[in-house]
Design a binder for these strands. Sequence first.
DNA 1: TTGGATATGTTAACGGCGTAAAGTTTACAC
DNA 2: GTGTAAACTTTACGCCGTTAACATATCCAA
Lengths: 208, 208
Amino acid sequence: MATRIAEPVRGTDTEVAILESARDLLAEGGLAALSMRAIAARVGVSATAIYNYFENKQDLVRRVVSLGFERFVGYLRAAIEGVPPGSTERLQALGQAYIRFALENREYFRVIFASHADCPTDIEELPAGGGYNLFRQTVVDAMESGAIRRSDPDLVVLYLWTHVHGLVTLLLSCEPNARCRHTGEKLSAPELFGRFGDFVINGLKDRG
Amino acid sequence: MATRIAEPVRGTDTEVAILESARDLLAEGGLAALSMRAIAARVGVSATAIYNYFENKQDLVRRVVSLGFERFVGYLRAAIEGVPPGSTERLQALGQAYIRFALENREYFRVIFASHADCPTDIEELPAGGGYNLFRQTVVDAMESGAIRRSDPDLVVLYLWTHVHGLVTLLLSCEPNARCRHTGEKLSAPELFGRFGDFVINGLKDRG
DNA sequence: TTGGATATGTTAACGGCGTAAAGTTTACAC
DNA sequence: GTGTAAACTTTACGCCGTTAACATATCCAA
């Protein structure tokens, strides 16, 4: 038998280069800038060469989005490091990280949550691969420590997620500054999140 | 002088026909189905004829979206009819109408809130033309009646809006059924909204 | 009445898009 | 050396938004 010379197939490099170019193009100019020809030009290859590695454009985008998601979960993980479990601060840290990711990776975020019926998913699979469970565990800890009142953790996760997601998508709809003017002042997403935190956490606490 | 034969200029009919065809195509197949050539084919006219009435595609889309917005405000107005002012029920009715519009006019909703930097807007101009003020007045009434605690009405409007918008966009990201499975059951947007209402309203009430 | 502007359309064409088909080069197993 | 499979190119098709040039109808002023 032939000893496998462990040199990786040259094509694999190309695949990585395609994904990286696609990721960069997406970040720089949004979905509109993400064309097969543009990607190919960056990689230094013909547009049709891409079809050796990806079934079609949608498949490629799916892969790029998947990479973006890992990045997203990285934000969440980093956010709660050093913040004591069971505290509402930890919940807020997660929310802030969600916002930070969206603002620092706008095009990624947009594409991730613009899965226009192309790729039907169950809602909790979106931030899965650790994201959802991270969120959920933080909620459970907060309930057990008494920081928030006991109820269905999944419902609470979805509630908090809804809140932060809504804030981000609304502000992202109002490019270019992603800020909101109300009562005369301009507020950024993190500032608004801070102000809303009062309502949100209050709603989760025991009455009286 | 020639007596004015009151026949309206044929061109105006064409403009209306273009807008209606565009609206229908958008509703049927989303932004992807909305091409100048497809619109023209429906109207029975050449694609370039459209440029007599609209500067370019973006301009046309803006007009279509504007029509959609009027429709949206119509949903909101209808929702609070017959519901007593000052009640939290009125707030919930607005939220339910928001959700209903999004689910019954998905493509409209998507396009309205996907103003990808093309048309920078201040956030409160989005549901303006009556929408925002409607929302705000409902909040003010609820504060004055004591249904919710007194605080900055604009902040509360944004808070509630954030909540319902987040719920809808999250569920719309999970086509085709726009439902969420959690703890084993499938919940629709209105059902989830109902469950979240507890948290939301509780957060806005006075403590104790 | 006529003639020129204006409004309302047309067809042809440009460059860009995703992608299919066919052909070419390269690497390697037997 | 030959066959085979992978990696890649060229060419081409039918879409797309948009421009330019041209046709026709309508209206008003002289």
